[in-house]
Every structure is written in structure tokens, then in C-alpha cells.
Amino acid sequence: MIKIAFIILSLISIFSALMVISRKNPVASVLWLVFHFFGIAGLYVLLGAHFLAAVQIIVYAGAIMVLFLFVVMMLNLNLVNNEKRGKIIGKSIGAVVSGLVLVLFTYSIRTTKWNELFFNQVTDQEWGTAVKLGSLLFSNWLVPFQIVGILLFAAVIGVVALMKRKITRKVENGIVITQEEDVA
């Protein structure tokens, strides 16, 4: 049963990942990426990481992907997507390099003696729950957790600073003229 689920989920993930990088239209890519995230979330469930599966769907498939979609829609990229074609050499070099990465990974996975490393599937059903994770996060990992909070805060400030526009209003001949200027 688990075997079948794994096979299906992994096929979904790989296929949708391939679709993500091959679509010409970014909107399609985004939608395929959402699909991919669902596949990964399913794999998390198989591994027993229920909380992370939920976070994956909420944060990635929910928040981040909406952000992507929003930006794509806002920039209206279908019309301006002028990705130059014909640079076949560059693309093939990229493909070769990534293929080599995969070959190396495969080689190392195959040569690693996994049995000797003594892995056994988890029996404790509790290890992936929010309770378990939360108690760890708020005790041993409190400081990194706080630092991540600061990081997110800094990112918010950075985004605001990048997106800020200078708005000047002046009155000419009784008409209010609004001028917007990019700061960044």
C-alpha cells in the first residue's frame, strides 16, 4: 500500500517538476509547481511528518505560490515574455551539467551502504506531530526560532524599501498632478 502511494506521489512530483521548468507560460509553471508541492506534501505524510506536510501546503502551496501568481499576473508576463530562443548551446550545456549532477548523485546513492548505516523506519507515530515539534522548537531551538523571526522581519522591511515609490503632488492651474517615482 505504502509502496504504491510512494510510486504514485514520486511520479507526480517528478512529472510536475519537469513541467515547471519546461512551460513557456509562467502561469502554467506556477500551477504545475503547486501540483508538485502537493506531491511532496504527500510524501511527507508517508514519512510521518504530518505537521510539516500541513506547513508545506499552507506556506508553499498557499502563501508563496499565491505570491508568485500575483507577481506574474501583475507584470502581465504572457505579453512581455521575450525569452530569446535559439541559444541551443547554452541550454545544452546546462542540461549536460544538470545531467552530470544527477549521475553523480545516483552513483553516490548506489555506492553508499545504507544497511550499514543502520536505518530503521520510525515506529513512534508521535514524532512528527505539532506537539512534539512545538515543544522542541520552544525549548532547545528557541534562539534560532527567534532569529528566523528577525530574518522574516528584515525581509519585510527589505521588500517595503524595494517597493516604495515617491509620490509627489503639485497643483498646476488648479489641477492636481500626481507623480510617482521609484525610489529603488
Binding site: 547554452g90 546546462g94 551539467v97 544538470s98 552530470l100 549532477v101 553523480l104 553516490s108
Partner: peptide, 20 residues
Amino acid sequence: LSNYALLMSIGILFTIAWLV
């Protein structure tokens, strides 16, 4: 950017190869 990414990937490739 693509050139940098490519060079970086090749560098990573060699690093992994050296590790393996």
C-alpha cells in the same frame, strides 16, 4: 547571471565529484 550559475554548478559538480 546564467554564466555565473553555470560556472557555479560546474564548481559544485567538481566538489561533489571530489567528495565522492
